[in-house]
Simulated assay, not measured.
Amino acid sequence: MSIGQHIITERFYGAKSHTIDNVDIVLSRECGENTLAVVRINNALYQLLVNDDGKDVLNDHVEEVGASFGAWTGSSAFPIGPFTPLGTEQSNSSFITADNKAIVKYFRKLESGQNPDVELISKISSCPNIAPILGFSSAEISGANYTLVMAQQYVPGLDGWSHALTTTSGSFAEDAEKIGEATRNVHTALASAFPTRVVPVEALADALTTRLNELISQAPEIARFKEAAIDLYQSLEGEAHIQRIHGDLHLGQLIKTPERYILIDFEGEPARPLNQRRLPDSPLKDLAGIIRSIDYAAYFDGEHTQWANEATALFLDGYGSIEDQELLNAYILDKALYEVAYEINNRPDWVKIPLEAVERLLD
Rank of each mutant, 00 (worst) to 15 (best):
H250P: 09
E239W: 10
A229G: 00
D248Q: 00
H241V: 14
L263M: 10
A240E: 11
I255C: 09
Y261P: 11
Y261N: 09
G247A: 00
D248V: 00
A240H: 07
G252H: 01
G268L: 02
F225A: 01
E269S: 02
I262D: 08
G252V: 05
Y233E: 05
L254E: 09
A240C: 12
Q253A: 04
S217Y: 03
I222R: 02
I222P: 00
F266Q: 03
S217A: 14
L263V: 12
E259V: 13
K256M: 12
R244N: 06
L254R: 04
D265R: 03
Y261L: 10
H241I: 13
S235G: 13
A271W: 07
E237D: 15
K226Y: 12
P258D: 12
I255E: 07
R272V: 00
E221Y: 13
H250W: 02
I242N: 03
L236W: 10
E267C: 05
E259T: 15
A240R: 02
S217Q: 11
E221F: 12
A228C: 05
Q234P: 07
H246Q: 01
Q234Y: 11
H250L: 00
Q218W: 09
G238Y: 07
Q218C: 07
E259D: 15
I262W: 08
A229V: 06
Q218G: 09
S235Q: 14
E269A: 07
I245P: 01
E239Q: 15
A228M: 08
P270H: 08
K226R: 15
L249D: 01
I255T: 07
P258T: 11
F266G: 00
L254G: 02
L236F: 12
R272K: 15
A240D: 09
I264N: 02
E237T: 15
I245S: 04
R224W: 10
L232W: 04
Y233N: 03
E267Q: 07
L232A: 10
E237R: 14
H241Q: 14
S217P: 05
H246D: 01
P220R: 07
K256Y: 08
H250D: 03
K256P: 09
P258G: 09
S235A: 12
A240K: 05
I242P: 05
G238R: 04
D248L: 03
I264H: 03
L249S: 00
P273F: 00
E239G: 09
I245Q: 04
Y261K: 11
I262G: 08
Y233K: 06
H246W: 01
